[in-house]
Design a binder for these strands. Structure first.
Length: 893
RNA sequence: GGGCGCUUAGCUCAGCGGUAGAGCGCCUGUCUUACACACAGGUGGUCGGCGGUUCGAUCCCGUCAGCGCCCA
């Protein structure tokens, strides 16, 4: 006996264990089945399951389970990401709380702590993915820093370097003063900050009393100014171009240069150029051959090292040495004001770049870093999307991808961190660099170069975390070894992710995949889903206090409820607004299925493989079998098209709206009746369709469906996951069955409607008298008498013979007028009003169609079938009006 | 400033050239022997505004407005 309710807390973990232990999630590279591959976006090892994971992983698991049931050799590749900065931050903080400092303990000891931390805490997210029911092939789990993936990283680094696509360069980078590392453009976010624009007066050399006023938002960098730029066509400054100014404080002579970068409309039209501390100024400096002294160090504190004396204000400059950039700003402004060189101060809202992890303003800093030539690698990736080798779903995201890729900048891949893949480059004492997979190879190269052994020092930096993530689609399959997995599962079928990492990850996988896998894309489709927001559409954040914990929802409502809710809300290109209430609502659907199962069980219905749908003879069996066929077709098409909302809706509609609301009710009289072929057929159809329902819903609701599958004997426990996805079964004369059942549903609906409107209590049952009924209708009424009695609260159904009884309510069903004698309860004027209303409605519709058909243009130009359809509709409305007129006439007297 | 998207019933959203739909909510009944996480019935919309294309526009085009996101 099934329990009264589905005990998710007890059943879900047991079934998951069962699947995992029986190898149900395993891919079979040795098998012949067509593969279906999804690479998990590797969660950070520092992470724990949040609601966004719940969305993306549910979507991936639905696809994986669906394709697996279709007979595909499904590989959903699991793994985690080492997450350089994030992890280093977490461990460093942990150590700090124990009074230990990273730099004091040294690199080796620190890394040992990180690995230790990973062993203890790194498995959190993978345990939580199991709670979500994710059918990942766990024995294949990879980690971006495991030995194999590290080998792939070295291989790629060395190969790109040898191809000239990876190089060292001294350029401006985004420097994060908190983490003391370079970060990529993508890790920088622009934030609005209220600040000021300061107007500084720089004296013109040799013309006492003459000044050029420059406007700047960063006065503290003026120590590093090496020019002032004006627009070449700015008449105000034409005579100054080529002359020199005397930079206050340092006393340095700096030229006035003409450069179109200076915007005459902005500020004063003259702009100070600080090549070492501003990306635009750096470009200007290159064009004019300017020096680029740095005036801020790794901590973003003032350094005088690159500002040679003699200085104009030596005491003041010395007081700045080692001062934080913002303190230096204050000091310099005060000093310039004192010197009467501050012309004006205006309030201003700045767009200030911030480190996305540290949250502090980043500092452009001139350093030597490793770069990947992204521009070159991007070209094949752009072409692959243009030609449809990789298709984004929804398509509009391709624009986002193109916009980024067509304007891509060199990718800075080195990071001044310890946790990550250490760069495989070694330096000789003279600075010569040797890039090699191992130190031995680097030594050999050095020996060949110098003719003797030299002492090599390895580059201390590590690679950007996204460097290894970019290789994920093939490194996880064993590359650079040519493994059977690599041969079978590359390229992947679909990559599922949010739009926020199209640049970070999708674009880079495309570049690396195409480059290292013989021009083959890493995945054929990219499905981009929305963000999870709260029920008001607000982004979830800890500070707003509106975060939802998926694990808490799972505990409260069960995994299936959460997953089905997510599927229902995941429409195309839309964010998912999720509230607790939504999950609670959709849990009802699971309960509904559970109760239907209990009903089947108490009627002795269980799996019966001997039942042949093609041999069904009763309209009821044929109708529900045909309905199941249609639901399967809709759901399958929806899943093929990544329409998770439609998949959920089609399943929901069929299960609740057809199977439970009508079929089970229609079946009750038969099931309560005598044993025999009719009962056997209803039971056969019921178990068959219920089996189909379990399969249909398994991708979205894996646990309850798997439990019921075993309970009803469709198969051993934990075998539904491998059951064949349902297809259409042959059903004889489905059309006729549909017509008959539609009539029945229509009749019951109409009778219920009129009874409710007339306020007839359910306890009052009345006969149904048929007027104008065809032979077919009379035969149907007789055949379904027990159903009609029960569902339409009727005592009997018979043709009207003789006079119309006093006080009837009437409804039109097709050609028939159904009369309900309600002498005691009927309100004649209300009934007249009701019929009048129905007639008015039919008349209004008829008028609309008449007008349409009266339009010569419409008849001449519209498609023939549309015209025909409207003629049919007009006839139907007119017939209905006639019957309603007759009904009104009957009660008139 | 550039780009993308959204605006349909009280709420959340489907539909996207030819009868406006769903779920939830709300209202009215009902503990009808699977289910009150239920059953039955009902209420509710000039499909953001204005133009255009078309025999016909919620749907296509233009424009305006509001909202959201991305990039500068």
């Amino acid at each position: 006996m099934l329990d009264k309710t589905f005990d998710h807390a007890a059943i879900e973990p047991r079934l998951y264990q069962g699947w995992e232990d029986s190898g149900a999630f395993a891919a079979h590279p040795e098998g012949a089945a067509k593969p279906f591959t999804i690479m998990i976006p590797p969660p950070n090892i520092t992470g724990s399951l949040h609601i966004g994971h719940a969305l993306t992983m549910t979507v991936q698991d639905i696809l994986t389970r669906f394709r697996r049931m279709q007979g595909r050799d499904a590989l959903w590749q699991p793994g985690t990401d080492h997450a350089g900065i994030a992890t280093q931050m977490v461990v460093e903080r942990l150590l700090a709380s124990q009074g230990q400092k990273r730099r004091e303990m040294g690199r080796e000891a620190f890394l040992a702590h990180v690995w230790e931390w990973k062993r203890e805490s790194g498995g959190t997210i993978t345990r939580q993915l199991r709670r979500l029911g994710a059918s990942l092939d766990w024995p294949r789990e990879r980690f971006t820093m495991d030995e194999g993936l590290s080998e792939a990283v070295r291989e790629v680094f060395v190969t790109l370097h040898s191809q000239g696509l990876l190089y060292r360069d001294k350029r401006l980078v985004n420097w994060d003063p908190v983490f003391q590392t370079a970060i990529s453009d993508l890790e920088v976010e622009s934030r609005e900050v209220k600040g000021h624009i300061w107007h500084l007066r720089y004296p013109v050399e040799g013309e006492p009393g003459r000044f050029v006023t420059v406007a700047t938002t960063r006065p503290e960098t003026m120590l590093g100014d090496t020019a002032v730029a004006v627009h070449p066509e700015d008449a105000r400054y034409t005579d100054l171009v080529g002359k020199h100014l005397v930079l206050p404080l340092t006393g340095r002579r700096i030229p006035v240069v003409a450069d179109a970068y200076s915007d005459p409309e902005k500020g004063t039209g003259a702009v100070k150029i600080t090549p070492a501390h501003d990306f635009n100024d750096f470009e200007v400096g290159k064009r004019h051959g300017l020096a680029s002294p740095s005036v801020l160090d790794a901590d973003a504190k003032v350094t005088l090292a690159e500002i040679p004396g003699p200085w104009a204000e030596p005491d003041f400059l010395r007081s700045l040495d080692g001062l934080d950039r913002f303190a230096a700003r204050k000091a310099i402004i005060a000093k310039l004001e004192e010197m009467e060189l501050l012309a004006a101060v205006e309030p201003h809202v700045n767009q200030v770049p911030h480190g996305d992890r540290s949250g502090v303003p980043i500092e452009p800093r001139l350093t030597m870093q490793w770069y990947v030539d992204a521009k070159t690698l991007a070209q094949p990736a752009i072409r692959a999307v243009e030609t449809g080798q990789t298709v984004f779903v929804p398509r509009q995201w391709e624009n986002t991808f193109f916009a980024w890729m067509r304007d891509i900048q060199p990718w800075c891949v080195s990071r001044q961190l310890w946790w990550g893949h250490q760069i495989p480059a070694w330096y000789a004492p003279d600075g010569e660099v040797f890039v090699a997979k191992t130190e031995a190879e680097a030594q050999a190269a050095a020996r060949a170069k110098f003719g003797r052994d030299v002492e090599l020092v390895r580059d201390p930096d590590v690679l950007d975390t996204w460097f290894s993530s970019a290789l994920w689609p093939f490194s996880t399959l064993g590359w650079p070894q040519q493994t059977p997995e690599l041969a079978k599962y590359y390229p992947g079928d679909v990559l599922v992710t949010g739009f926020d990492i199209i640049f970070f990850w999708v674009a880079r996988m495309m570049m690396m995949g195409l480059h290292f896998m013989d021009g083959r894309v890493p995945f054929e489709k990219v499905y981009i889903h929305g963000l999870v927001r709260d029920e008001k559409g607000q982004k979830m954040s800890k500070s707003k206090g509106n975060v939802m914990d998926p694990l808490e929802l799972i505990e409260a409502y069960g995994t299936d409820a959460l997953r089905f809710t997510i599927a229902s809300l995941t429409g195309p290109g839309r964010d998912v607004k999720l509230g607790r209430k939504r999950v609670e609502d959709f849990r009802s659907f699971g309960t509904k299925i559970w109760n239907a199962a209990r009903f089947l069980e108490m009627n002795g219905i269980k799996a019966d493989p001997s039942f042949d749908p093609a041999s069904a003879t009763t309209p009821l069996a044929r109708w529900i079998l045909d309905g199941a066929n249609r639901a399967v077709a809709e759901a399958t098409a929806a899943l093929e098209a990544f329409r998770f909302d439609e998949y959920a809706a089609a399943s929901y509609r069929f299960v609740w709206g057809s199977f439970c609301d009508w079929f089970l009710e229609f079946a009750k009289p038969v099931l309560n009746g005598p044993d025999g072929p009719a009962k056997d057929e209803v039971k056969g159809a019921a178990q068959h369709v219920f089996g189909t329902i379990l399969k249909l819903l398994h991708p979205a609701m894996p646990f309850m469906t798997e439990a019921l599958h075993a309970e009803f004997g469709y198969g051993a426990e934990c075998t539904l996951i491998r059951a064949a996805w349902p297809g259409a079964v042959p059903v004889a004369d489905a059309e006729a069955a549909r017509e008959e059942l539609d009539w029945l549903v229509g009749l019951i609906g109409e009778v219920r409607g009129v009874r409710a409107e007339m306020n007839v209590p359910p306890s009052v049952t009345v006969p149904l008298l048929l007027s104008g009924a065809s032979g077919t209708t009379l035969a149907r009424a007789e055949a379904w008498i027990n159903v009609i009695r029960r569902m339409a609260r009727a005592t009997e159904v018979r043709p009207l013979d003789g006079a119309v009884p006093k006080g009837v309510a009437q409804v039109v069903v097709g050609e028939t007028t159904v009369m309900l004698p309600l002498a005691d309860v009927i309100d004649l004027s209300a009934e007249r009003a009701r019929l009048g209303q129905a007639r008015a409605k039919a008349e209004a519709e008829a008028a609309k169609v008449t007008a349409k058909l009266g339009n010569a243009d419409f008849v001449a130009r519209a498609k023939e079938e549309v015209v025909e359809e409207n003629r049919d509709r007009l006839a139907a409305f007119q017939a209905e009006m006639a019957r309603l007129d007759a009904a009104l006439a009957r009660i008139a007297g």
